[in-house]
Each structure stands twice: as C-alpha cells, then as structure tokens.
Amino acid sequence: MVAGLSVVRNDNPLSPAACPRLIVKVGSALLVAPDGTIRRDWLATLVADIAAAHAAGQQVAIVSSGAIALGARRLKLPKGGRASLEDAQAAAATGQIALSQAWSDLLASHDLVAAQMLLTLDDLEDRRRYLNASATLDRLLSLRVVPVINENDSVATAEIRFGDNDRLAARVGQAAGAQGVLLLSDIDGLYTANPQRDPEARFVERVERIDAAIFAMADGGTASGMGSGGMISKLQAAQIANSAGTTLAIASGHHDHALSRFIETGHGTVFLPERAKRARKAWLAGRLRVTGSIQVDAGAAAALAKGKSLLPAGATEVSGIFQRGDVIDVLGPDGRALARGLAEYDAADAARIVGQRSDRLAAILGYAPRAALIHCDHMVLL
C-alpha cells in the first residue's frame, strides 16, 4: 500500500494529530545494503510516508545514518570504514554527499525541500551553539522544510562526538522542541532479553520509567554490525528524550512504509516521559551557573507568569556580564528571582534596549534584532 496515514491507532502519541513536530531517525542497516549501496526502493517508501505526514500537518526532521557506510564502499576501505578514526572521517566526508543527494532527490519528488545540518556534540552542549541550532531547526520546520541531520563525523573525534545517532536524535528532538522521536531500527523494540539468544524473551510495549531493570534487558550489540548503536544507546536516547518531556519510540524499519506502519499499528516500544514538558526545562532551574540578571516591571512579571517571552519593553535593568546563550535570572520589581533562562543578547546589547519597544530595536542596535530578551521556550519559572 502507498502510505496515506489512514490512522488506525488514534492513541498513538507520534501520530500527526498528537505530535505536531516529529524526529525520525534512520539507522545505517536500514538505509545501506550489505554491499554498501543505498536501499533506494525502501527509502522511497519512507519518504512517501514523510510526505503523507507532512500533508497531514506534521513537521518532520530526519536524523540519518549511513554516511560512513556509503563512503567506505566508494573508497574501498576495510571494516566498513571503521578501522581507524581517519578512515571513518574520510568515509563520512565522502559518503555524506551521496546520502544528502539521495534524501534531497526523493523528497523533491514529493515537492518537499530538504536541508542539511551536520552537528557535533559541542554544537548541542555549548549553550550559544545550542541556541543557534535550535533557532535554525525551528525556522526550517516552520518553513515546511525537511531537515536531514547527521553527526559531523568528518571532524568529530572521540572527545566531541555522540557516538551514535540514537542519542543525537534525542538531542535534536530537544533542540527542535519536538513532541516525539521515532527510532527506526533493525529490531522492533525492547524485549525482556535479547530475542536472538533467549526464545522466551517478551516484547515490551510501554515503558513509563527507565531504571536499572529496564537497562538489564538490553545489550550493546547491533544486529547488522553496520551501525554504532545498540539497545543500550536507544535506552540512553529515551532517557534524554523523556527528560526533555518528549515521547520516544523504537520500531522496526525492515518493512516498506515503516513510518506509516508504526503510526497505523502502534507496534513498537514507546517510552513515555514522567513529567511531560515540565522536565524539558528542569536543567535550567537547578544545574547551570547564573552569570547575570534582568529586572522587569510588574507588567512583564505578569506576562511571564502566563508563559510569555521576556520582551525588552518590560525590562528595567541589566546586571552582570553575560553573552548570548548564558543562563541568567529574571528578577521581579522586588528583586526576587521569578524565572531563569538563556539570554538571547549579550549583556551590553541587552542594556541598550531595556525598556524599548520592539519597533525601535533595529535602529538602536544597528542590526536585525531578536524578538525577545529571553524566549519562553528557553525559560523556566522559579
């Protein structure tokens, strides 16, 4: 069948109706054949699913493995390009072109525009770079573009890499403000034991808490030997996603139309966040160093309490030395901390626009301004 997302499982948390923004991760074993070529016919069915989800109003970003495997074949490198770091970097640089072209061509056949983003660990760990990545993802998705994302393996080293695209997909989900992450895998989900070794292993449909007992069900291997992840990396990805208030699911990608099949049948393992979206901002409240503050008037304080962003017009004073992306406090008229968030401006520029209307900012700063001093997506109330 050609996927039209005729949804049977209306309760599926990753369906277009329940999940306006979705991250789909595609593993190397699904996308690349054993001979090192792209499984283009299979990929075409997945792209048809993405186009159907797009038509249903869902915004979709793709985290795609496969560059190293593709490049290794073109360069005739041993061990799938993973014999050394240098080989992996060379294979990634070569294979990424072919990978991006395949996605772009197939998406274009459905009148969808593709965009490429290559990220390293530092891009999502450093707060300023995280903000830039988040803003780029948000803008691309709002423009109805389909971002195709991969780790930048051509420059990443052991110290600055995710190591697998499962965890990258979870981090991208956080940066994109996605409600769901789907890991299409060479296994259909989590089992109580490795089903290839234990015939009595039972399938796990829902996980509401990831603890030591859940990790005990997993092992670190991959069925294909082609990728870098395994069930443990998928559980770690689920932890990252759930801590951000995002639902994560693992489903088999071996079938044609893998996305629509999961949406329609719900067959896979779904990891549900314990505290929904509140957990997504928990790290702001307690774990990051505060480098400055912005005091606000009573009107701005009331707007913040309703979930609004902090606009320059409501600010009264800037204190401290901080840069865009640093964590700062928002103080009420009485000096009490009301909120904490990531600064959208350096301290010097923030001080220049305190109390100013939005239509004055460009003239004051001399460049196109950002709408908020702190955006509500990057702020938590205290």
Rank of each mutant, 00 (worst) to 15 (best):
S185M: 07
D186V: 03
D186T: 05
I187H: 11
I187Q: 11
G189R: 11
G189L: 06
L190A: 02
Y191V: 07
Y191I: 00
Y191G: 05
T192L: 00
A193L: 09
N194G: 03
N194H: 09
Q196I: 02
R197N: 15
D198T: 12
D198K: 07
E200A: 15
A201F: 10
R202Q: 15
V204T: 11
V204S: 05
E205G: 00
R206T: 12
R206S: 00
R206P: 00
R206E: 11
V207A: 02
R209A: 12
R209L: 04
R209Q: 12
R209F: 05
I210H: 09
A212R: 12
A212F: 07
A213F: 00
F215H: 15
A216E: 13
M217E: 03
M217Y: 04
D219G: 13
G220S: 12
G221Y: 04
G221F: 03
G225Y: 09
G225F: 06
M226R: 13
S228Y: 02
S228D: 09
S228T: 15
G229C: 10
G229D: 07
G229K: 01
G230F: 06
G230K: 01
I232R: 12
S233Y: 05
K234C: 06
L235C: 02
L235Y: 06
L235K: 10
Q236E: 14
Q236N: 15
A238L: 06
Q239S: 15
A241R: 01
S243F: 01
A244I: 11
G245F: 04
T246F: 06
T246R: 09
T246H: 09
T247L: 10
L248P: 01
S252I: 09
S252E: 01
S252G: 06
H254A: 14
H257P: 02
H257G: 03
A258W: 06
A258S: 13
R261V: 03
F262R: 11
E264N: 15
